[in-house]
């Protein structure tokens, strides 16, 4: 049982981060497609903004790789806790970032001059995801091999 938990924890950051990225990119992508119907140019930047939540998957991959590859009864509870919690943080940050990106696309479609500032909420959310990612790496180094 403990070993199973360890394996769940090992894969959780990647799986949860990827699911969050999918949902976030879906929201941003839908907003980008809608905005493309309304504007005559600048499609590329909408797609770029819609892709912002994909970074959580990369963080998830790195955290998974940083966790101990050898799962034992000693380290599996720690791997489970670290993996699931960091995965949840990445999942929700990607989801929320998708909504923030959709809002930014919607706002900058009508007022292109607010494009930069409208991305501030999405950037803040990215910051929180980075916190979760960095501290997951730090704590992963303290887990027993």
């Amino acid at each position: 049982m403990e070993i199973t938990l360890g394996w769940i924890g090992l894969y959780a950051p990647l799986a949860l981060g990827a699911i969050g990225s999918m949902l976030g990119c879906l929201r941003g992508g839908m907003a980008a497609c809608g905005a493309m119907l309304e504007v005559e140019s600048g499609y590329g930047r909408f797609v770029g903004v819609a892709a912002m939540p994909s970074s959580q998957t990369i963080y998830g991959i790195v955290v998974t790789m940083a966790l101990p590859a050898t799962i034992t009864a000693d380290n599996s509870p720690g791997i489970f806790a670290l993996g699931v919690l960091s995965g949840l943080a990445l999942f929700f940050s990607a989801f929320a970032q998708g909504v923030a990106c959709a809002s930014a696309i919607n706002a900058s479609k009508s007022k292109p001059e607010v494009f930069g500032i409208s991305l501030a909420p999405a950037a803040l959310i990215e910051g929180f995801a980075v916190f979760a990612f960095v501290f997951a790496l730090v704590l992963a180094g303290r887990l027993p091999e």
Binding site: A31, G34, A102
Partner: peptide, 12 residues
């Protein structure tokens, strides 16, 4: 959710 629809409507 209507992300695409809302984004396709111009500002009123």
């Amino acid at each position: 959710m209507y992300y695409d629809l809302i984004s396709s409507l111009p500002l009123l």
